[in-house]
Amino acid sequence: MPKQISVWLSRHLQVLFDTLGRLCKTPVTSVMTILVLAIAITLPMILYKIVDSLESVTANWIDNPRISLFLESGTDADNPDPVEFGQKLLQNPKIEDVQYISPEQGLAEFYNLDGFAEAIEALPSNPLPPLLIVVPATGRDNDATIILADELENMQGVDTAVYDQQWLNRLAAIVDLFQRGVLVLACLMGIGIVLVISNTVRLGIINRAAEIEIIDQVGGTHAFIRRPFLYAGALHCFFGALFAWGMTNMTLYLLASPVSRLASLYESDFMIGWISPGIALIVTAVAISLGLLASRFTVDRHLRKLKPG
């Protein structure tokens, strides 16, 4: 038994190295084919990574809603002290936490943002009202949060209560749209892989038609004839996926600094990050499977012609 396994293994290794040798013999064609595959695989991977990162951020925002409570400004006697007012709110069971941001703190934050410093210096006085950030205990229950925001707005000393769900909903819709885009690109990628491999294998068969005919004549099984083409399909896809992984991470690297600048304008520490090895592995496996499928289909179509007529 071990002998059979070693024979089987050595036969497969031989085909593997033989196929690698053939790839190296026509380096320009091989590299071009692999790059086409890599680009087809890269596009959905990049979009996937962007959507995935966006989604984790929006999910965080949606799961942890905030109500911004702008208090009446000025030192009117009717207006409560913001800190005391906050303490009072905490007694409401529908409120989990309250955080006070004084006008001075608010201004300082703006000051640190790009492009705001000069505008602020031009102001005669601080226009910002005192702000309470309310963390509702309502969680994801959107309607309850809206009711709570209305209640808060009607309280004495409150100017406006902003619960910006609409903006979040829009963002969620955009993420949905991008997710659909990833699916579409992934399908196009699949079709691209199948077409590229079919064509590559078809050309390989034409180049080796004489060899195939002779192997068939001296008693080679169809599995034997098929094997090098299956390896060619799988190897192209393997290298395509490998290149795609590199290209995706390179693109993400190029996007990283503009994205973090953009994110800082939105007061977010949003980052795209890298393609994880797990995802890269799945993509490689899918690409190789499609490559195998496409080459198998293409060779079988040719093998049908070899049947004795």
């Binding site: 004489a210 005919e213 068939d216 004549q217 001296v218 008693g219 080679g220 169809h222 599995a223 004795p308």
Partner: peptide, 22 residues
Amino acid sequence: KGNRIAAYRRTIGTVFQEHKLL
């Protein structure tokens, strides 16, 4: 059919009119 054809051909040695070498 199928692999039986290949197995059968291995029991036959053919010398072709046009040598058919690789």
